[in-house]
Design a binder for these strands. Structure first.
Ligand code: MN
Ligand code: MN
Ligand code: MN
Ligand code: MN
Lengths: 155, 155
DNA sequence: ACAAAAGTGTAGCCTTGGCTTTATTTGACC
DNA sequence: GGTCAAATAAAGCCAAGGCTACACTTTTGT
């Protein structure tokens, strides 16, 4: 997850094509994980602003289930990535890019939950698992989920 | 992910029931992520032993797409957790617990891929996404996946 | 049998994302 | 308007999981 701006560690010739493909999959999973935290915080900040008019660090921390310094650090990362802004002792605000991310993440989250329920997962469990699953659903898979849901018998 | 044997940070009364439920979800997702790496390494070691008769650190690293010291560290964690054994300059071996984990993870991986394909995800993409998704599929959801696949028209 | 190559181990660095503790600022209330 | 509680910030700890560089074994090939 540090792997952000690293030279990408080119594969030695000794690695078989099989190995390389497999390694690619793990790399993709790691990349997805690296952005997962930012996605969740962006979504949460969006929720809070919508519900309460503003997002305070204390509220973010409470909802994320972390100590407030952890939330502060996450906000710092979001700022560094250009996803939010904040001034000392004031609330946190999403930039356009952050708002865009939050909306996308929220929509994907909903689709994942809906798909799980359509498959037969209890809603409670669907909501629980979706929080982790969502970050590993690619655009292609998301499209497939939407398509599947669209042609579901409305029950 | 350090969160292993921590006091679980009891929720303040100020947090609403809503907030608490949400926080629980994030905590579960974090817990799942914490074991994800061990699961992947255990599965990989199992694969290598089956295919090549033994699991060498170099092969593990190549297939995981990491540098070999990273694989060595992962093996150390597996050993600490009682999931594998190894002696210097010799291969890595799964303990009964490790083998059990590897088998469970492999079966779950297969189910996730099959489900994605059944939903309409291209096989290539299914394999890619499954590598990350699998670690967030609870037993309940896995059972639902199996049930769904069982009553699928065989195509 | 030995030299070279390949594999392995070890040390030390970095970032992330948790945490606690302590200091400062803000805002609410009387 | 002053006091005090709550919110925020700042500092510093830790483990995980990446990495490189370097040292040491083991294996291989002549
Ligand atoms: Mn999430
Ligand atoms: Mn979410
Ligand atoms: Mn995986
Ligand atoms: Mn897998």
């Amino acid at each position: 997850m540090p792997n952000q701006n690293r030279p990408a560690a080119e594969m030695p010739d000794s690695a078989s094509a099989q190995d390389t493909a497999q390694a690619e999959r793990f790399n993709q999973a790691r990349a997805a994980q690296a952005v997962a935290v930012l996605e969740d915080y962006a979504e949460m900040i969006g929720d809070l602003i919508e519900e309460l008019g503003e997002a305070r660090v204390t509220d973010i921390a409470a909802r994320m289930g972390v100590a407030h310094p952890t939330a502060t650090k996450a906000v710092a990362r979001l700022k560094r990535e250009g996803l939010c802004t904040s001034r000392p002792y004031r609330g946190v605000f999403l930039t356009p890019a952050g708002a865009e991310l939050a909306e996308r993440v929220r929509a994907r989250h909903r689709t994942v939950v809906d798909l799980l329920i359509a498959i037969g997962v209890p809603p409670e469990t669907a909501e629980l698992d979706a929080e982790g699953l969502e970050h590993h659903v690619s655009d292609t898979t998301l499209a497939a989920f939407d398509a599947f849901l669209a042609k579901q018998p409305p029950r």
